[in-house]
Design a protein around this nucleic acid. Structure first.
Length: 260
DNA sequence: GCGACAG
DNA sequence: ATCTTGTCGC
């Protein structure tokens, strides 16, 4: 197992060299006034990706890519694919299971020059809120490289990582996060920065919808800042899980049920 | 040594 | 991730 982890870590480090953790895109969030009429690009198409697995066939799964209209949150594109996944799940290396299907679905959309190709993707898993994988050429590793980072680099698209559970890393534990959330002295507008023992801000915990005490964990995937990521996630939450991910989740499960 | 460990 | 019914509440 340790030999496997070493190989996966090395592959992760290679991709990590391309990671960008700041805003790097040519559109805006389309606040109100200066929208489309002013000529600037506005964020319109947000993609969501998820995989569901079969109960009796653990190696067969369904990957689903959806695209939603940022403003209406309507699903404007959907594509699912049944695949065989033999790569085992190893904590810290989730992306290696998801990457093949993800790339296949995205490439299909790209090749067909679809009009609603996503400007940004939301991934169910973490971004830089992820365990260290070792030093990178003597450089200090400032953050991890979760599946949202991994898929973002592969697609060369901005990505946001959204976890439903906390992956304990850099001293961040459920009890620690609970303390931070309860100590709402930081009456931040709904989210708490997650600062690890290293002093780095790895993500944010936020109560995304009214009826959920359980937070979601947002972190930078690729080519977006944490501030932008949080803002975008907030705007796409009708329920606890942001719509792009929720829709991909629901539809991948449905598709798998119908076709297996 | 033991437990923890995204989906 | 997946195994799973009802149930309490807005």
């Amino acid at each position: 197992m340790t030999i496997i982890r070493n190989g996966l870590s090395k592959a992760q480090d290679t991709l990590k060299r391309k990671l960008i953790t700041e805003d790097d895109y040519n559109w805006k969030l389309g606040e109100s006034e200066e929208d489309e009429s002013s000529g600037v690009q506005v964020l319109k198409y947000i993609g969501g990706f998820d995989i569901s697995f079969s109960k009796h066939h653990p190696s067969s799964a369904c990957g689903t890519l959806v695209v939603l209209d940022f403003k209406t949150l309507n699903v404007v594109y959907e594509d699912s694919s049944i695949v065989t996944i033999d790569v085992p799940y190893v904590p810290g290396f989730l992306a290696f299971r998801e990457a093949p299907v993800f790339v296949q679905l995205l490439k299909k959309m790209q090749d067909s020059s679809h009009s609603c190709y996503p400007q940004l993707l939301m991934i169910d898993g973490n971004g830089i809120l992820h365990p260290r994988v070792g030093d990178l050429m003597l450089l200090v590793v400032k953050n991890g490289f979760g599946s949202a980072c991994h898929l973002g680099v592969l697609a060369d698209l901005p990505t946001i990582g959204v976890g439903k559970n906390l992956h304990h890393v850099d001293g961040l534990t459920n009890s620690r996060v609970r303390e931070l959330l309860e100590a709402e002295d930081n009456f931040n507008v709904g989210f708490i920065p997650l600062v690890g023992d290293s002093g780095n801000t790895l993500g944010a915990a936020l109560h995304s919808s009214k009826g959920s005490f359980k937070p979601i964990f947002v972190s930078v995937g690729h080519r977006v800042s944490l501030a932008s990521a949080v803002e975008i996630v907030k705007r796409t939450c009708k329920y606890r899980v942001p719509e792009p991910i929720r829709q991909a989740d629901i539809r991948s499960r449905d598709y798998l049920r119908k076709h297996h």
